[in-house]
């Protein structure tokens, strides 16, 4: 699972393939997989009970480049050691991980790329997130 951090970003894809935004959206709203809506809200009108611990995902693609989004998913503790944001692609340096999850990241490389591809579509402005 090697990746290279440059500044506050991981510029290169974790896989050879480009992520799929539709699959990424499905992961974001899945409360067992992405878990995102436990803490974040966003443009998900069909989803009830979105958390308010973290900033809205709305406009995430305007605020951050793809590489910045990728690092924030992979290991946000590199940017803020005290962050509440889980490190989605980290298996080292964790404590007492339950046996069922041991040695596994929260999301695999392809899922990270899908989520990143979806977040990159979330642009500010009316209807902007509908654009490809």
């Amino acid at each position: 699972m090697p990746f290279e951090v440059v500044g506050d970003a991981i510029p290169a894809s974790l896989t050879a393939e480009k992520g799929d935004p539709a699959r990424g959206r499905a992961i974001v709203v899945d409360r067992q997989k992405g878990l995102c809506l436990l803490c974040h809200s966003g443009p998900f009108p069909e989803q009830r009970f979105q958390g308010d611990i973290a900033p809205s995902l709305e406009g995430a693609g305007s605020r951050w480049s793809e590489g910045q989004l990728r690092l924030r998913l992979v290991d946000a503790t590199r940017l803020n050691p005290d962050t509440s944001m889980p490190s989605y692609y980290k298996i080292d340096g964790l404590n007492r991980v339950a046996p069922a999850f041991r040695g596994k990241p929260i999301l695999d490389a392809a899922q990270i790329e899908d989520v990143m591809a979806y977040l990159a579509t979330l642009r500010d402005g009316p209807g902007a997130q509908e654009k490809p």
């Binding site: 503790t77 509440s84 999850f101």
Partner: peptide
């Protein structure tokens, strides 16, 4: 204050 588990939260985080 110790982070725990795959999700890596401490009690204090929440």
């Amino acid at each position: 204050n110790q982070r725990l588990g795959q999700l890596n939260f401490s009690c204090a985080h929440c």
